[in-house]
Nucleic acid binder design. Structure first.
Length: 189
DNA sequence: AGCGGGATTTTCT
DNA sequence: GAAAATCCCGCTT
């Protein structure tokens, strides 16, 4: 672990997920600095039937079992990328899916990549990856480095956070590991 | 406003 | 060979 501010990422995915709400992702793209705020997350770990890491370490999930603070990018439905921040210690198959972000700067750059605007820009896991041009080439990327950095902000108050079941999964539907910032317009659904 | 289907390819059984 | 941590469009109320 390079940075002390990343220490909390060593914890359980279900503790890390709400802690990431309000944190910033800074992306260098097309010569501009694009900044977004994380507003919706979901936790996944190896005890969890809905998690890619549930069946153990494979070629695909290798990054999830690696050191925290790196990016786990997967491709799904034949056309979409989704991105996670790896949590837990080395050897632990845990990660937090970034489901939605709020644009702060570089909005025109994102519109160029996403071909949409307003909340449609980033209110879903595959949408924000398209807006930020995140693909397999960033799988395993160290989030302390360019061109994509995680900037940790102070934890939000519990009253500002809503906790529900996760979206779009067929297993472990009742596990309440989805977290989002209450009343934020960029939250999905 | 809500429902249903299609796109399209990686990954694991 | 089937399912998948999704999204978009078109059709029906």
């Amino acid at each position: 672990m390079v940075s002390d501010t990343f220490d909390f990422l060593n914890g359980r995915a279900s503790d890390v997920a709400p802690r990431l709400l309000g944190c910033i992702l800074e992306r260098e793209l097309d010569g501009e600095v694009v900044r977004v705020k994380i507003v919706e997350t979901e936790a996944y770990d190896e005890t969890d039937a809905a998690s890619h890491s549930y069946k153990g370490r494979t070629q695909r999930t290798d990054i999830m079992f690696g050191p925290p603070g790196h990016l786990y990018v997967y491709f799904t439905y034949g056309m979409h990328y989704c991105c996670n921040i790896v949590a837990g210690g080395e050897g632990t198959g845990a990660a937090v899916l970034i489901r939605a972000v709020e644009p702060l700067s570089g909005i025109e750059v994102m519109e160029t990549h996403r071909l949409q605007s307003g909340v449609q820009l980033t209110n879903g896991p595959a949408k924000l990856c398209q807006a930020l041009a995140i693909n397999k080439s960033l799988n395993g990327h160290d989030l302390t480095k360019e061109p994509l950095r995680l900037i940790v902000e102070p934890a939000l108050a519990n009253e500002a956070i809503e906790q529900t079941v996760r979206i779009g999964i067929s297993k472990a539907k009742d596990v309440p590991w989805r977290f989002y910032i209450k009343d934020n317009p960029y939250v999905s659904r």
